[in-house]
Amino acid sequence: MDEMGRFRQALVTWVAGGAGASAAAGEARELTGGGVRTVVLVEGSSDQVALEALATRHGRDLGAQGVAVVPLGGATNIGRFLDVCGPAGLGLPLAGLCDIGEERHFRRHLERVGLGSGLTCAGLETLGFHLCVADLEDELIRALGAEGVQQVIEAQGEMRPFRTFQGQPAQRDRPVEHQLRRFLGTHSGRKALYAQALVEHLDLERVPRPLERLLDHV
């Protein structure tokens, strides 16, 4: 496991508490001294994959640059990660990405740990925390267009499962963009798979704003 992988694992163990938390905190602090300079807090692994894939397309290796992209395992965990990474913990520079529906969790806990007050969306962006309009999948679908996303699905060899999904009674009358968004989340691992594939097919002039602004920030 590389340094950033060890750091992510140490953070998760520290946040979880219990018998291993003290040792994990020590390892996280050691790794911070050894090169971790910024922590990017994202909701899930697909957000991590997308940001790292976009960085690669720009010729950047975030890990080598000391940027640790850490999935929270859900937006409601943001408070515990801010406690260990923020001013009262490791004291590292922070940034992040979340869905607009989860923005209240990020805003409330950023204010609680002293990283702002009365934060607006613009204020969050100034801190380095960016909002997806619905979620990252929605952002990528709009950037590529429905036809472009279906080309990626075809390249992944999953057009037949997608057509079967479209034929389900609950999906038949829905817009194709909605069908695509639901399909990308239908089983474990598919979101991350397509986060990588969709970013790799993006026109770099049409990168979703929150993803582009976040990468620029770090």
Rank of each mutant, 00 (worst) to 15 (best):
A192L: 08
M4G: 00
G118W: 13
A170P: 00
C132Q: 10
G167I: 05
L144K: 01
D99E: 12
A53L: 06
L90R: 02
G73D: 09
V40S: 05
E205C: 04
H217P: 03
A143H: 03
E158D: 14
R60G: 13
R107V: 00
L136H: 11
R213I: 00
G148V: 09
V39L: 08
T186R: 15
A197P: 12
G34T: 01
R142W: 15
V39T: 02
P175N: 00
R172P: 02
A50M: 02
L90P: 01
G18A: 07
E30S: 07
R142I: 09
D135M: 12
R142T: 15
L184K: 04
A170W: 11
D173V: 00
V49L: 10
L90N: 05
E177P: 00
G185D: 11
H109R: 03
G18R: 09
V40L: 11
R142Q: 15
H178R: 15
H178V: 13
L204P: 07
V39I: 15
A146T: 13
H130S: 10
V218G: 08
L92I: 03
F165W: 15
A64F: 06
V149Y: 09
L110Y: 02
V149Q: 06
S117Y: 12
P175G: 04
Q65K: 01
A75F: 11
G20A: 12
G114E: 10
G73V: 12
H178I: 14
Q179N: 10
R160Y: 11
R174H: 08
L41P: 07
H105E: 14
L97P: 08
L131P: 02
E3M: 15
G66Q: 11
T32L: 05
D83T: 11
M159N: 05
G44F: 12
R104F: 08
L41Y: 02
R174W: 13
G128L: 03
V42L: 09
H105W: 11
P71D: 14
A143L: 12
G74V: 06
W14C: 02
E3T: 14
S45I: 14
G116T: 01
V40F: 03
H58M: 13
V149N: 05
D216Q: 14
Q65V: 01
T120E: 00
V36R: 07
A23G: 03
L202C: 01
E30T: 02
R108C: 02
R8L: 05
A134Y: 10
A192Q: 15
L41H: 07
L41C: 05
R181K: 12
H58L: 15
L31C: 02
